[in-house]
Design a protein around this nucleic acid. Structure first.
Lengths: 217, 217
DNA sequence: TATCTCAAAAGTGTCAACACTTTGGCAAAA
DNA sequence: TTTTGCCAAAGTGTTGACACTTTTGAGATA
């Protein structure tokens, strides 16, 4: 993980998120400011700010005087995240289709073709590249700084989506072709269908309607 | 403004935002932690946290060791905000159409009919009510806690959109009827068109393409 | 006069101590 | 035994002092 920290808060934020990804803090578990401060050899101030940043990104929930708790990532939480993602990524790919320069788009296409045999870390990367190319910085931040953090947490806890890899690849390919054809309506529609399918898969996999099942302890 | 503060930070946050709305802090202007702390008779800690919260909502931008600056709200900023809004509110009304209970929807319709003669504070309220009814708390927070704050700032500085009041009313009415008919596709489509028209009006009003014109000093 | 240097001033980042709230358990009362 | 009330312990909220970075502007140099 790139620790380009200019200030202690940045480093503490990354370290806490590593703990979260590593499972050391259980889903729904509490974050103790003092303990984290001592662990990272830092005072409570930076830890407080880092936790507040996690809160701003929806990874942690908190009420005054109650300890911060890691999000639970139950099925309803995931559905909420994916619904928001569907809306925002749809607009992201629409704008990218309209705004990306020809050469940037060609580069993305050829990189994607090259990478089709590698690990599925690439999968997320397509979405990131589109968000970076959409030209709307608020949308890019919403996706890269918030929703993708939650997805990383989910994936770290659940393992990748089973059996979706081949499907996802061809869906991405369709999206990129629509972008290349500068068909924004189609690109948005394909992206929304792509995310919607992932959502449906989630629901089936994790146990149907809004029950209280956790993904993991 | 309801000051249901449980902690100093909440109060400071509201007070700073009041300063922002009142124009005491100019767009693009700097926020001085120490000065604000003295003004509100509070130490710098709560002020720092309040500013960080403003930053999380996109109202303020900041880099380490440089003072926080209020967002500039130039035309490109507004376009970014409205594009994000179009995506998220489209999903918001789609979900509300699927999820709101019949009686809650009826109540909203009748309240809207009653309120058609009052001030356009009501206009925003329809969007809030829909967001509250959509059943997705992340979407509700995204709209009510972030985007609507930016819109309030914009309106406080520019005055309401001219001439759009009657149009907006009939557009809202159409949306509510589509919701009542449980036609989620139509409701989303109408909402997106509604916001898109507002965006176009903005662009025409404030001086066309992405030049650097500020809304106000 | 114009430009460069650098020291003082202003402002943000960090820390450790103190104040307030919540939590958990013990003891008294029923 | 169960319930209620209270007290100590744990944890968060707030503060003022200190450390570090950026900015400002006065003086030296050309």
């Amino acid at each position: 993980m790139a620790k380009n920290q200019q200030t202690l808060v940045d480093g503490v934020f990354d370290k806490i998120f590593d703990l979260v990804l590593g499972g050391e803090i259980p889903l729904g578990g509490a974050l103790n400011e003092a303990a984290l401060a001592e662990r990272f050899d830092v005072s409570r101030g930076p830890v407080r700010e880092a936790i507040k940043r996690l809160q701003g990104r929806g990874i942690v929930t908190k009420q005054p005087y109650l300890k911060a708790r890691l999000v639970e990532l139950k099925v309803p939480d995931l559905i909420e995240i994916f619904q928001l993602r569907e809306a925002v990524e749809g607009m992201s790919v629409r704008l990218a289709t309209q705004n990306m320069a020809d050469d940037a788009l060609d580069e993305l296409l050829s990189e994607f073709a090259d990478a089709q045999n590698r690990s599925d870390a690439v999968v997320l990367d397509v979405h990131v590249r589109i968000a970076e190319g959409c030209g709307n910085d608020r949308i890019r931040r919403q996706l890269c700084d918030e929703l993708y953090y939650l997805l990383r947490l989910y994936r770290a806890r659940s393992g990748a989506m089973p059996g979706r890899r081949k499907d996802a690849f061809s869906e991405h390919w369709q999206i990129l072709r629509a972008m290349k054809a500068r068909d924004a309506d189609l690109a948005e529609s394909l992206m929304r269908a792509h995310i919607n399918r992932a959502t449906q898969g989630l629901i089936e996999l994790l146990g149907a309607t809004g029950d209280e099942t956790k993904v993991m302890g």
